[in-house]
């Protein structure tokens, strides 16, 4: 009861969007995530960093229950979005994912036209009343994805025909088209060249105006550039979580320091 009270206070003051408590994830017999507690604020970019296999992507996929699609994966603990337990039996993962969008490591446009790629989400969730409305949504999403100028003349061309960076921005546009409140990004730049990466990073910064963005990244420079908060994962544990400046300048935990200085990872 008392804990709850404190939590509410924190929400009130810091605008907590996602709150995770004692989250454990098991893959079959493997204990992939151990005791993770984290609070992610609204309208902030939060970066998850850590060496490969540390569990950062796994934890990210817990937030919109993408792990449900893997048979052997089991999640224990409590993750709340706006105070609602997303692992509650009454929650439909489909509704949850409309609220928590996701962008993947490799650009994965559907083998459809650019327009249909973006319109897919609004269509299945019934967000548009008519064709004009849908056109509007698509244009807005493509603008927000900073790709509108490049594709506005060829909306009927297949999405798979774009370059890697364009494809990833298309996927971001596709994700924001459903009007999510949280945007999860799983190493969105790992398959992109430096120029495309810069474009996407710029885009992430703009998206912060409207969304709570959680980004998993391999690159510490990227985390430093785009995020306000950083969480460092190591071997399934959340080692340290705090303001990005602080993590990169005066880390508290020796493991964080080792990683940042390049001694482990």
């Amino acid at each position: 009861m008392k804990d709850n009270h404190i939590a509410e206070n924190e929400v009130a003051t810091k605008n907590i969007k996602i709150a995770a408590r004692d989250v454990q994830v098991y893959y079959g017999d493997t204990h992939a995530i151990k005791d993770v507690n984290v609070e992610i604020e609204d309208k902030t970019v939060t970066a998850f960093i850590g060496p490969s296999g540390c569990g950062k992507s796994t934890f990210l996929r817990c937030i919109n229950r993408m792990n449900d699609t893997i048979d052997i994966c089991r999640v224990v603990g409590d993750i709340r979005i706006d105070g609602e337990d997303i692992y509650d039996r009454k929650v439909d993962p489909v509704q949850l994912r409309a609220k928590v969008g996701m962008v993947f490591q490799k650009p994965n446009p559907f083998p459809k036209s650019i327009y249909d790629n973006v319109a897919y989400g609004p269509r299945i969730h019934g967000l548009a009343r008519n064709k004009a409305d849908l056109d509007d949504i698509v244009e807005r999403a493509l603008r927000r994805g900073a790709i509108w100028n490049e594709v506005k003349d060829r909306l009927d061309a297949p999405g798979t025909g774009l370059s890697g960076g364009q494809q990833q921005r298309l996927c971001i546009a596709r994700a924001v088209a459903t009007e999510p409140e949280v945007l999860l990004m799983d190493e969105p730049c790992s398959a992109l060249d430096p120029i495309a990466t810069a474009q996407v990073e710029e885009l992430i910064d703009e998206l912060r105006q409207n969304y709570s963005v959680v980004i998993v990244t391999h690159s510490m420079q990227q985390a430093a550039r785009v995020s306000q908060k950083t969480a460092f994962f190591h071997l399934g544990n959340l080692v340290e979580f705090g303001d990005t400046d602080k993590i990169f300048t005066t880390p508290e935990d020796p493991r964080t320091e080792s990683y940042i200085t390049g001694r482990i990872g």
Partner: peptide, 20 residues
């Protein structure tokens, strides 16, 4: 809590997750 924070924060735009 949601209503409390409504001032600055964009409150849960969608409906509650607990209701289909």
């Amino acid at each position: 809590d949601a209503s409390l924070s409504s001032g600055a924060a964009p409150k849960p735009r969608g409906k509650s997750l607990l209701v289909q």
